[in-house]
Amino acid sequence: MKKFLVLACALALSGLSSAALAGEGFVRGEAGQSDVKVKVDGLGSDSDKDTAYSLRGGYWFNPNFAVEGHYSRFYDKTLYDDGTDYVDGKLSAIGLGIVAKEHYSESNLGFFVQLRAGVARGKVSVDTSEGSGSATSTKPYYGIGAGYDFSRRFGLSLNYDHNQGSGDGLKITANTLSLGLEARF
């Protein structure tokens, strides 16, 4: 009886496609613009925009759910330079999160919307003619996107992401609008 049960299970599992049992890895590159806002207690607030990019990778467990890791650079500019003294500022983050995706067709191709959320460790770095320093904080991030999967292996999307950081009287937010290209393997 046990041999028959094992054989029946083996035949049932062999009938399932490998695509149904196995997910697929992905890499994604995004480029766009970040609107960075800084608020310092007692000093006020300011904002600036800069070109941003993000490199993401992860694993789709099925067409609707994935985990991802990412590195994002939101800001990298010279804030002051008079030829002698200078101040350079950088804002970046590494993170880990989940992605939920829904296609408008049963084939899991074509138009889709996606949500992503997780935790990111943001880092603000300042380099001056007098020295340098940095600070980090770990906060949640979230984003939304819409796009088009041209094939099972390639898609394009427009994304909006919100990242934040704070500490010692400093609050920073980075709202990023980007175009993303994703390859799945």
Rank of each mutant, 00 (worst) to 15 (best):
S92M: 10
Q114W: 03
W60Q: 03
R152D: 13
D50T: 14
L79A: 14
D76C: 07
L7G: 12
D76E: 03
E68N: 02
F65G: 00
D50N: 15
V6L: 15
R121T: 13
E130I: 14
V99R: 04
I94P: 07
V27Y: 08
Y104G: 15
Y142W: 10
H162D: 12
S105Q: 11
G97K: 01
L96F: 02
L109D: 06
L16A: 05
S14R: 01
V27P: 03
K37L: 08
G83D: 09
V113A: 14
D48V: 09
R73G: 11
G58V: 00
F4T: 13
A135G: 13
A146M: 10
G155N: 11
S72W: 08
Y86M: 02
N64K: 06
V124A: 15
R56K: 15
Q33P: 07
S132W: 05
D85M: 08
Y104E: 12
K101W: 08
S129I: 01
H162G: 05
G145Y: 02
K37Q: 09
C9N: 10
T78R: 11
S72I: 12
H162F: 04
Y53D: 03
V87A: 13
A183C: 01
A8H: 01
T78V: 12
N62A: 00
Y148G: 06
A146S: 06
Q33W: 15
R184M: 00
C9I: 13
L5R: 10
G23V: 01
L96H: 03
K2V: 13
G89I: 04
G57H: 02
L5W: 08
S54P: 05
D48K: 15
V126Y: 07
T84F: 04
G165F: 07
I172L: 01
D81Q: 07
K101P: 02
G133R: 08
T78H: 07
G32C: 06
A19G: 08
E24M: 09
A135C: 03
E24T: 12
G167D: 11
E102W: 13
S125T: 11
D48E: 15
N163G: 10
F61E: 02
I98P: 01
W60M: 01
C9G: 11
G44Y: 06
A20H: 08
Y104W: 12
A117C: 02
T136A: 00
